[in-house]
Amino acid sequence: MSNAATFDTRTDTAIPVESPLAYSYRRSGAPQAGGPSRLQLRERAMLGHLILRGGAIVLDEAVRDVLGISLPGQPQALVQDASGERSIQWLSPDEWLVIVPGGEEFPLETKLREHLGSAHFAISDVSGGQTLVEISGEAARELLMKTVIYDVHPSHFPVGKGVTTVFGKATTIIRRPSEDRWELVIRRSFADYCYRWLLDAAAEYGVNVQQ
């Protein structure tokens, strides 16, 4: 067991929570263009987000055993389990982002720590610090071209890729888990800026925001 402190920041009780976009929904609303909208935005709030750091070789076995998916070793790679509910994304040669259903992150961290024993690694819970926004619809790529500086053309951004890049004047992690769906991982403190930016950029296409 690595000599680090673990702390389950989540509680089971019926205590009210607020996602990073809670303020933004109140301030900017959740536009509904109706049926023919060419864009859909959906926040997937309250997921479990862990930053995993360490050597790929050290981490890979533990991740496979505990999570059932292998650690992506290639830069920019994103892998998911069969259900699509759990994913691991390469962030740097010694850093990965793990996203799991909310509440799974602490048991996962605990199991990984047990499995990794005295190896040198780090796991940081960042679930409260970021949120995930899904973008789909025929205008999704054009919306992203207005938003991120990274090339989102399918020839350059196939399914199974994810990168950290510039979003407007902020930053984001952008991922493509499937043909017709993009994901943005947005930092809590920038979430309102990002949300307003997306609504503004999406307005010309018509957008449905699912809360």
């Binding site: 830069p75 040669p93 510039v166």
Partner: peptide, 11 residues
Amino acid sequence: PYCGEHREEEE
């Protein structure tokens, strides 16, 4: 050299 691709200077 770590990401293995060209990226914009802003990054």
